[in-house]
Design a protein around this nucleic acid. Sequence first.
DNA 1: TGTACATCAGTGAACGCGCGTTCACTGATGTAC
DNA 2: TGTACATCAGTGAACGCGCGTTCACTGATGTAC
Lengths: 232, 232
Amino acid sequence: VTSPTAPRTARARIRDELTREIKAAARRQLSEQGSAALSLRAVARELGMASSAVYRYFATRDELLTALIVDAYEAVAEVAEQAEASVAREDHRGRWLAAATAVRTWAVSHRHEYELVFGSPVPGYAAPQATVDPAARIPLLLVGIAREAAGTGLSWQPRPLPAPVASDMRALAQLLAPELPEDLVARLVMAWTHLIGAISFELFGHLVGSVTDYPAWFLHQMEVLADGLGLA
Amino acid sequence: VTSPTAPRTARARIRDELTREIKAAARRQLSEQGSAALSLRAVARELGMASSAVYRYFATRDELLTALIVDAYEAVAEVAEQAEASVAREDHRGRWLAAATAVRTWAVSHRHEYELVFGSPVPGYAAPQATVDPAARIPLLLVGIAREAAGTGLSWQPRPLPAPVASDMRALAQLLAPELPEDLVARLVMAWTHLIGAISFELFGHLVGSVTDYPAWFLHQMEVLADGLGLA
DNA sequence: TGTACATCAGTGAACGCGCGTTCACTGATGTAC
DNA sequence: TGTACATCAGTGAACGCGCGTTCACTGATGTAC
């Protein structure tokens, strides 16, 4: 909100820096114990400051949690977008696979941040409006791929949608890509659901003893989903 | 472990009853706050007993948690098996849809118990061996449907499995249904993954604003999965 | 059937802990004239 | 450029809370003879 010509005061710069340090310390704690164990006092301790000082930066524990959630959404969207952008534009399947794989890789190396956004909701915490836009970045990325692929022709096995589903998907398409048929939008939502479901199954231990090569299993699933979307 | 001829003493009967009451109270707390807030002291308070008395029944908080997890697995498996059993044997698609729908219905009305078993793992808690068998009941049920359906012929779009995936699926099939092709086993694992992924997406709020008729959307997804499995 | 002893369930006090948040304060930084 | 005042960051003590777990105990229930 500060104009770029007005140089920020030393105070403002230090404030931003400490805000970042607090979030980094909180993230470190998160990665060791999970979100339930995240405590303002522990963060303060790690930074060597009085616990009350943290309140100059975040008014409550929930506010800090919200900041971490927003950051996590942004971070995972960032890696997905970059991975997708590095694939030749006409290779729609490759773009989908690259984005999906990037999400999984990020999730594996940021387990608890992943849980924060895609795991069970933190009890007593209501996601504020600020998390909506960052949360939409990856779905939007996937829609973008589908739109361009649809332009060059897609072939998927159609299945008629029940009326209420059709109208939900119609409304979604209206927002994102009016030219896409409802059926395809439904497939996209399913693919997105499965993508996250597959990562959660792996991270939450439901495949222990059944799958040994997780990256290969994940990639295979994404290929099957690409088939379902009719990606060349 | 008591022989049925030896009538259980009054003490033993009361013990079982109180054990059940403790679990019920714990479940009630769970449904209000989630697993992180589950406390032995609060359970004791609700039952009007000293907090130390609970230790006669569960040696630690984790032991109580384990009991709840096992109970939850058993409960959801129970409803799935019953729903599946009530469908005509030759209607394989109907059996799959019935089982899947039963799982979703249970999850919706037992939100926090569902989270306990399919949400983010409770930090610092390692699932003991006792949870393995109950956790396998639903997957086994699904395999059973696929086996019988395979007997009458299944048609699904095959996709060759990468070597590591093929060997994982081979090993799984060996355990459960040696006659099933690896490719179909892979589809089954995917269907199970998507089933849980879809419920989690709904319950964890990732479809808020996109889907309004959740039961219809869920059922549609299960139909598409049935197509993918080649169920008639 | 009665008695002596062992087992068990439940009590209440206590230990030691960490938490979120508030408050009055000090001293440093920034701003307006 | 210097001064007076307002803003801000950080401190340390405190409030009130709930937690898991242990321990020595009492009294009731069950068991062996």
